[in-house]
Design a binder for these strands. Structure first.
Length: 292
DNA sequence: CGATTTTGACCGGCGC
DNA sequence: GCGCCGGTCAAAATCG
């Protein structure tokens, strides 16, 4: 029952360990970023994420305190086009069936404004851009300012830890996220966001700053990513962490060797445009999000 | 009592 | 074509 998740809601102490290295990996393994040390900030700035070193190493807690952490956080991003063009590679998230058919006839009363939802037979669904963060944390669920409802949990192959599926409780919002623990390093929580929120965060006063940073990140990183991210290819069974640890240094727009062209984001490019209004912000939350 | 979680079943994509 | 696996649904259970 809710006990398990509720347990994670405790404002438990958030412990981060490790260095300050950051990893950007395309969710799905088509591309990834990997940077650390001095370079990280410049790269982050490149993505419109102007965090000072101080900020990079802080994380909020429920008690309202900002506690310094030795963060070892990883972000992954998968532009929509890349996501939709990928067929069988995976990293942070997996699956060949990332296509979430969200059966057209069911539950979500959302009109098919969004291509994803209106997938029809024989029509390849275009997936929303996804952003994945690896966070070294003891708790699974990271508070990001939005309310989420769990709609599924699955055992992950080759991993003792299950993967949980959440969707935003806002009926008009189609954003989903997956939360799982790394099988190799149980202290690492992998959170993958998919889609963009179409509403404000719900009560998250103290996290405002971080939220906006996240917003900037969400809005600007994605499109920028198209020019920078580089692909890595992994066997289907490849473990997420392996994926992230095996990525190479950043390079300029490189096409997906599997035939896709990650750098081109046709139909979905629009969805990656930076929000023009704060209300649309907060697509994702950067590493620094609060632990619920 | 409404909201949320749990959990088994189902569906669809992909590899063999 | 078949089996595997990820993702989602939906009824039941649980919580506040």
């Amino acid at each position: 029952m809710g006990d398990k998740d509720r347990a994670t809601s405790d404002p438990a102490a958030v412990e981060f360990a490790g260095d300050t290295s950051w990893t950007f990996a395309a969710d799905g393994s088509d591309a990834a970023y990997f940077f650390s040390g001095d370079g990280e900030r410049s790269v982050l700035r490149e993505f419109g994420w102007n965090l000072e070193p101080d900020q990079l190493n802080r994380i909020g807690t429920d008690d309202g305190l900002w506690m310094p952490v030795q963060s070892s956080l990883t972000c992954s991003i998968e532009p929509a086009a890349a996501a939709s063009s990928r067929s069988n590679n995976q990293s942070v998230s997996s699956s060949s069936s990332e296509d979430q058919p969200e059966k057209s006839t069911v539950s979500d009363e959302k009109p098919p404004e969004i291509p994803i939802k209106s997938k029809k037979k024989g029509q390849k669904r275009i997936r929303q851009p996804r952003f994945a963060f690896m966070t070294k944390s003891e708790v699974d669920h990271l508070e990001d300012g939005y309310r989420w409802r769990k709609y599924g949990q699955k055992a992950v192959k080759n991993s003792p830890f299950p993967r949980s599926y959440y969707r935003c409780t806002n009926s008009k919002c189609t954003v989903k996220k997956r939360v799982e623990r790394s099988s190799e390093d149980p202290t690492i929580v992998i959170t993958t966001y998919e889609g963009q929120h179409c509403h404000h965060t719900v009560g998250f006063p103290r996290g405002g700053i971080i939220c906006h940073e996240a917003a900037a990140f969400a809005g600007q990183l994605a499109p920028t990513m198209s020019q920078f991210y580089y692909p890595i290819h992994l066997p289907r069974e490849t473990n997420n962490i392996n994926t992230l640890s095996s990525i190479s240094p950043p390079c300029q727009a490189q096409d997906d060797a599997s035939g896709g062209s990650n750098t081109v984001m046709p139909a979905d490019a629009s969805s990656l445009q930076p929000p023009t209004d704060e209300g649309l912000l907060g697509d994702i939350v950067p590493p620094g999000m609060r632990i619920r």
